[in-house]
Each structure stands twice: as C-alpha cells, then as structure tokens.
Design a protein around this nucleic acid. Structure first.
Length: 277
DNA sequence: ACGAGGTCCTGCGAGC
DNA sequence: TGCTCGCAGGACCTCG
C-alpha cells in the first residue's frame, strides 16, 4: 500500500527515465484515467520528453514538456522499466494489469500496472498541477515544517488523531501503516481527539513521523503483498514494523499484548494499551 | 461545516 | 478439495 516512502522509492527509480523521449503510448485500462480520455493522453504523451520525476504526498509526478502526469498508485500501483520486448505473451508477469505502457526512444519501455485499479491518473497543465498541490498539506520531511505549524494544521479537529494524521489536506503522505507506527513511537493513543493534544505531543509526533518515514525510505518501503520498487524488488521495512500487523503479539517495548480495533475510520488500528495513552 | 459511511476494485485467506 | 464470503484500504463522493 504505497504511502510516502513507497512512492518516494518508485520516484527515485523512475529517475532513470529522466530525459527520455516517449515514442509511443498505450492505455490499456482507461478507467484509471480521471480527467483525460485515453485518446488525449496518448496524443499528449507521444513525442514528449520526461523532463523530471518528482513526488508530492503519495503521488508520482512525471514532468512532461508542458504537462504534468500525476499518478496515484492507490493500493496496488507500481512501475517497471525494462528493455522493450518484441514478443510478449499476454499473460506474462501481470501483463493483464498494465494500465499504461510507454515505449521510449532509447529502446526501453516504462509500464505502470495496478491490479485493483484503486489508483488514479491525471494529466494537468501547470496551473492545474499547482491547484492540485495546493489542496495537499505540507510534506512531513520538509525541514521548514515546524512542530507549531504542524500542530496548527492538525489541532483544529475533534477527530481521532490517527484519522487526522492520515488526512492528506493536513499532512502529506502518511497512510495507515505509518500512522500506526508513528503514534506508537510517539506514545500517543490513536483515538485521542486531535484538539486534546498539546504542542509537546505534536513535537513528539512530528519527530516520530519523520524518523519512521525516513527509515522506511532507507529500507525502500514496506512490502506486505503488492508493493514493489521500480526495479521489481520488495522493500524491507516490513521487518521493522513495531505494531502494524502485530495484533495479539507482545509489544516490543513492554510485552503487553497489542490490541486492534476498526473503530477509527474503518481501518485497522494496532496499538499498545500501556505505551500509548 | 463537519462527520459518518458508501464506493471503487481484485486477490487472497479463512471457514465450511 | 472446492467453494463462498469478507477483508485489505486511499481518495473521493453523497447524505444527514
């Protein structure tokens, strides 16, 4: 489930196509396209050069000559870069799940696949991309984000802190796995109303979010099932998870049996009754 | 304005 | 062994 570290890893691997010219484009799963028809997308991509690749929140962004191709991998989206193959069997290597295939002028092919197709793709002009980015909260790893600004963005809500932490309009890039981990690391009860925490809590929480996201990037992400890096490898952070996926097992810090609930935002929350209050 | 809950989508694992 | 069913969940949507 690509969150910030997984998308960051994909984007770093996608850096390998920077400067490449797109020779042909094919859309195989048009329902993933949200604001553009397959025909228009193909027309815009053909002959364009990938000027840069970047990440915003959980989105990968290909900067083309005068457009931005924004890809939200959703739950199961992934990229692969490979030498172009002349003969492919239709069934081979998840071929059925390919959403978009780009043939590059240098002989390589860039494929984007998404098994469940909960991901989305947008083609945006510069002003549209600016508006898109403005709707998303600050990047947690941006050093200019202060604990005070973070607290300000989050504290106005009476919702559970875990739900607020995952709200992309307030903070970019944190999803269910890293929210669970960060709240554990910060010693905060996931169900605590956001407006009940003080600035010191938010200072600890932001530090925990940053430490965990950075460690996950260093490990090239968390692979539980579908996620793969741009080179097709699984990540390694699943071995470092302290709470997510460990319900019923002993807390690594105090030995208490970890609890799980679906009460917050209908997503699994795993936590330690003793360490998180 | 805000919050709760439904929707999309498919593979997988639990249970019978 | 083979089937059905429910779950996984990010972002967007509607409804109250």
């Amino acid at each position: 489930m690509p969150e910030l570290p997984e998308v960051e890893t994909m984007v770093r691997d996608l850096g390998a196509v920077r400067g490449a010219r797109i020779e042909t484009a094919r859309v195989l799963r048009p329902d993933v396209l949200k604001n553009v028809t397959p025909r228009t997308l193909v027309r815009r991509l053909t002959g364009a050069t990938v000027r840069a690749v970047s990440r915003r929140a959980k989105n990968a962004v290909l900067h083309l000559d005068d457009r931005y191709l924004v890809i939200q991998p959703g739950m199961t989206g992934s990229f692969s870069i490979a030498p172009r193959q002349r003969h492919r069997r239709p069934d081979e290597e998840g071929e059925a799940y390919i959403v978009l295939r780009l043939s590059l002028a240098d002989g390589r092919a860039l494929a984007y696949r998404d098994v469940r197709r909960l991901g989305r793709m947008y083609l945006l002009p510069p002003a549209g991309y600016a508006a898109f980015s403005d709707r998303i909260g600050p990047e947690p790893l941006d050093p200019s984000l202060t604990a005070e600004a973070f607290a300000e963005a989050v504290r106005s809500s009476r919702q559970a802190i875990k739900k607020v932490l995952m709200d992309q309009r307030r903070l970019a890039g944190v999803g269910n796995i890293y929210a669970n981990e960060a709240l554990f690391a910060a010693g905060l009860d996931p169900s605590a109303p956001a407006d009940r925490l003080d600035v010191e809590d938010y200072r600890r929480l932001l530090a925990a979010v940053r430490r965990i996201l950075q460690a996950a990037i260093d490990a090239e992400g968390t692979t539980l099932r579908d996620y793969r890096t741009g080179s097709g490898q699984p990540g390694n952070f699943q071995f470092d998870l302290l709470v997510y996926g460990r319900e019923g097992q002993p807390c690594r810090v105090c030995g208490t049996r970890l609890a799980a609930t679906h009460a917050i935002d209908a997503r699994v929350t795993v936590f330690c009754h003793r360490c998180q209050r």
